[in-house]
C-alpha cells in the first residue's frame, strides 16, 4: 500500500518527479504479519493477572513488608540508626536480673517496649534487615496492608509480629556451600575451660619479619 520505511524527501515536488517506489514488496507482508500476529494472540490464553480474585505468585525474596521476631530483638538500635529514612522507632528500658549464683553479679538486660516502623516513610531498602545481627527483622511477601489514612501506616511491634508467620523459610543453601553459622556453632565441640597455657603467649615485641605479617 505505502512505503512506511522510506525516508521522505524534504521537497514534495522532487519526490513527484522521480518514481518513489523502491521497497515494494516489503510493505505488504509486513501488513499481513501484523494481522497474523494479533490473530494468533487472540487465539491464545491471556496473560492478565486477575489479582484480587487470584492471588499473585510472588518470588520468594519479594519485599512486601518487614516482619519483626520480637524475641530476637535486643534493642541494640542498629536498625534504627542505619535506617536512611529514620522510620524505625524503638523504646526500651533496662531490667536487672538478680544474680543466679550467690556472690555473683546482677546482670542487666534490655527489654523492648516499643518497636514501630512507619511504612509511609519506609523505602523498602532492607538495610535494617541486613544490619540486624540477631535476625529479628525479616522480609515478608505480604503486601496488602494499604490504609486510607497515611498515619495508619505506622505499625507497632504486635502488628509487625503478626507478619512473622508469612515469612518464607530461607532458601536452601548451594550444594557445596559452607555450613550455616548456627549449625556450625552447634556442631562445634564444647569449649574447654580457659587456662593460661591454652593460649600461647604473644611475644610483646617481635623483630620485624617480612613473612610474619602473613
Amino acid at each position: 500500500m505505502s512505503e512506511p520505511t522510506k525516508p521522505q524527501p524534504a521537497n514534495p515536488a522532487s519526490s513527484n518527479a522521480r518514481p518513489a517506489r523502491r521497497s515494494s514488496g516489503g510493505a505488504v507482508p509486513g501488513i499481513l504479519k501484523g494481522l497474523a500476529t494479533t490473530a494468533r494472540t487472540l487465539a491464545r490464553p491471556t496473560h492478565t493477572a486477575e489479582y484480587p480474585d487470584v492471588s499473585p505468585h510472588l518470588p520468594p525474596r519479594s519485599r512486601g513488608v518487614i516482619a519483626l521476631l520480637e524475641e530476637n530483638c535486643t534493642s541494640c538500635m542498629l536498625c534504627a540508626r542505619e535506617c536512611p529514612d529514620w522510620c524505625i522507632y524503638i523504646d526500651s528500658h533496662k531490667e536487672t536480673i538478680p544474680a543466679t549464683t550467690p556472690g555473683g553479679r546482677d546482670r542487666q538486660r534490655n527489654v523492648l517496649d516499643r518497636f514501630a516502623i512507619d511504612f509511609s516513610l519506609c523505602m523498602y531498602c532492607g538495610i535494617c534487615i541486613e544490619v540486624c545481627p540477631f535476625d529479628a527483622l525479616h522480609w515478608s511477601p505480604e503486601f496488602e496492608y494499604s490504609e486510607l489514612d497515611i498515619r495508619d501506616l505506622l505499625h507497632e511491634k504486635d502488628r509487625l509480629g503478626q507478619w512473622m508467620p508469612t515469612v518464607p523459610p530461607p532458601p536452601a543453601l548451594d550444594e557445596h556451600a559452607a555450613e550455616p553459622a548456627e549449625v556450625a556453632a552447634v556442631n562445634k565441640p564444647p569449649r574447654t575451660a580457659r587456662t593460661p597455657t591454652a593460649r600461647p603467649a604473644r611475644p610483646t615485641r617481635v623483630t620485624p619479619a617480612p613473612e610474619g605479617e602473613a
Binding site: 494479533t38 490473530a39 494472540t41 487472540l42 491464545r44 491471556t46 496473560h47 492478565t48 486477575e50
Partner: peptide, 12 residues
C-alpha cells in the same frame, strides 16, 4: 477483541 489480541482480558 482488542484486549485479547493484546493478551489481556479487558473489562471483567
Amino acid at each position: 477483541v482488542m484486549a485479547h489480541m493484546q493478551g489481556r482480558l479487558g473489562p471483567m
